[in-house]
């Protein structure tokens, strides 16, 4: 990650995209915990990466892992874009002061790790299971809608999703992995 970052500062687009591909989903997830609004989060991420690229020469050659920097940056952009009541802004801005930098760093590592594991778990599913999980959760469709979409019975859809979740859960072992700032 550090090398990628240094290459980005030098203007290497391939490294920039590598960072984008690795970190987009965890950042998206984090953005959604601040504000559950997909369009807003996508817009904020767009701004984040545009700014990152435009300011690449002036980026800090950070001592700590740059990931951390991006999560905080995203949070600032989201806050800048929405009218969050003042008290809540205070909460959001002060929160880092309460957790130590180190704690946050660990939290971010864990979210990255979780998404990686989720991706691996998804990759292990059958095509059908993956499709149903995507419809049910990423697109928030109901069982009835999925049944309709795939010419299946609601019972079948339920069973497929249930089995998929069971399979994934072992891979993710989620309970231990989640951390204060992300479990708002």
């Amino acid at each position: 990650m550090k090398d990628t970052w240094l290459n980005i500062i030098k203007g290497d687009r391939a490294s920039f995209l590598k960072l984008y591909d690795t970190i987009y989903t965890p950042l998206f997830h984090y953005g959604m915990t601040i504000r559950r609004d997909r369009e807003l989060v996508k817009e904020s991420l767009h701004i984040l990466f545009c700014e990152l690229w435009e300011r690449r020469e002036r980026l800090p050659q950070t001592k700590v892992d740059p990931k951390f920097y991006l999560f905080t940056w995203l949070k600032r952009i989201i806050i800048r874009q929405v009218e969050i009541p003042h008290s809540q802004i205070e909460d959001l801005l002060h929160e880092p002061a309460e957790d130590s930098i180190e704690e946050q760093r660990i939290a971010i590592e864990q979210v990255m790790d979780m998404h990686e594991r989720l991706q691996r778990a998804l990759d292990k599913l059958t095509k059908k299971q993956r499709r149903y999980i995507q419809w049910r959760f990423f697109e928030e469709r109901s069982y009835e809608e999925i049944a309709e979409l795939d010419n299946a019975s609601v019972r079948t859809v339920y069973n497929v999703i249930y089995e998929a979740l069971k399979r994934m859960r072992g891979d993710i072992a989620i309970l231990q992995a989640i951390i204060l700032i992300f479990s708002k």
């Binding site: 989903t25 996508k42 545009c50 690229w53 989720l118």
Partner: peptide
Amino acid sequence: EARRMVLLLVDRPTEEEFQMERARLLNHI
């Protein structure tokens, strides 16, 4: 645990969202 897993699953960009956003960013930079 179930609640966290739900959020983890829901708070992901779809493949299409990711592709469109990625293209949009590249378009820009």
